[in-house]
């Protein structure tokens, strides 16, 4: 006796993807929708919800600090993604050589990735301490001015980027490395016979051949940079002078510290639209230049 659902050829595919659909709906679609609903209410998590229309958004866009928050978010993204990609590529090119040092470093470069980001942040708070931190001690040992790694508003955001890059560059390098190693050797041999210089080989063969991987990694890193939270929460709490306050941290602070749930939801909507917009623009700009095999 077979189940009627399984016998119906038209329903069968839907039955098979149902479990995944349910998970998607419960854990992704419903929260997104609920967040959108919250964004037009005023609510403190306990009292009654009050409909305010676009009041939260109006408040948001008239807040003089909000522009700064968006700027922080975008600057953080720009620095983090470009540094991870550049150093990831350089490290991958180095690891791609033969020899025991490369093999050893392959393992080493993956190590930061298995440490929890909160632990990493705590350690860097120490290292970056103005007075007793290792960084400033080294600087003064070589006769340079100490830097207010986490206390100087001009520097703090960059310090957070540094921690994030330190943690994720190894993983990115390994993914790029696997792409490098999948380039057939005969292409480089053919290029040698075509008298191509090392730079030409890199620019005309290596980069195009790994472009799908680079394209994918940039996107993942962009989206990941919008989610940077642990470092900010542990190391700066958005300070000094809101210089490290980003969209995601504002959502957390407004929602879970000030209990302005509707206002936080409105920021989350802005964040989602921003990520969506950047992703679409990114695909438009680069997808045609990516070579898929």
């Amino acid at each position: 006796m077979k189940n009627a659902l399984l016998r119906d050829r038209r329903l069968l595919p839907y039955a098979l993807i149902a479990p995944a659909l349910v998970i998607l709906a419960v854990f992704y679609l419903y929260p997104i929708g609920y967040n959108a609903v919250l964004s037009v209410f005023s609510w403190d998590l306990r009292g009654p919800m009050k409909f305010v229309g676009f009041g939260n958004f109006a408040e948001l866009f008239t807040d003089p600090d909000f522009g700064k928050v968006i700027q922080n978010t975008l600057v953080y993204m720009g620095m983090e993604v470009s540094l991870v990609m550049i150093f990831g590529l350089i490290l991958a090119l180095f690891l791609n050589r033969q020899g025991w040092l490369s093999e050893f470093l392959q393992g080493v470069s993956f190590a930061p990735n298995v440490i929890a980001l909160v632990s990493v942040s705590l350690i860097f708070v120490w290292l970056m301490d103005d007075d007793i931190g290792l960084f400033n001690q080294i600087l003064s040992a070589v006769g340079l001015e100490p830097v207010g790694w986490l206390s100087d508003p001009q520097v703090a955001l960059f310090s957070l980027v540094l921690v994030s890059v330190w943690k994720s560059v190894g993983l990115n390098a390994l993914i790029i490395l696997s792409a490098l190693q999948s380039i057939p050797r005969y292409l480089f041999e053919a290029a040698d016979l075509d008298n191509a210089s090392a730079w030409t080989r890199f620019r005309r063969i290596t980069i195009p051949m790994i472009s799908p991987t680079l394209f994918f990694l940039v996107l993942v890193n962009v989206i990941g940079s919008f989610q940077a939270f642990d470092t900010i929460n542990v190391m700066t709490q958005g300070g000094p002078q809101s210089s490290t306050n980003t969209l995601i941290f504002s959502v957390y602070r407004e929602g879970f510290e000030y209990y302005r749930v509707g206002y936080a939801a409105a920021i989350a909507v802005v964040l989602m639209v921003l990520v969506g917009l950047i992703t679409v623009l990114y695909f438009r700009a680069f997808q045609k230049r990516v070579h898929y095999r």
Binding site: P184, Y186, R204, P208, M209
Partner: peptide, 8 residues
């Protein structure tokens, strides 16, 4: 295998 550059 001709070793044609696939990206060109």
């Amino acid at each position: 295998n001709y070793a044609i550059y696939p990206t060109m």
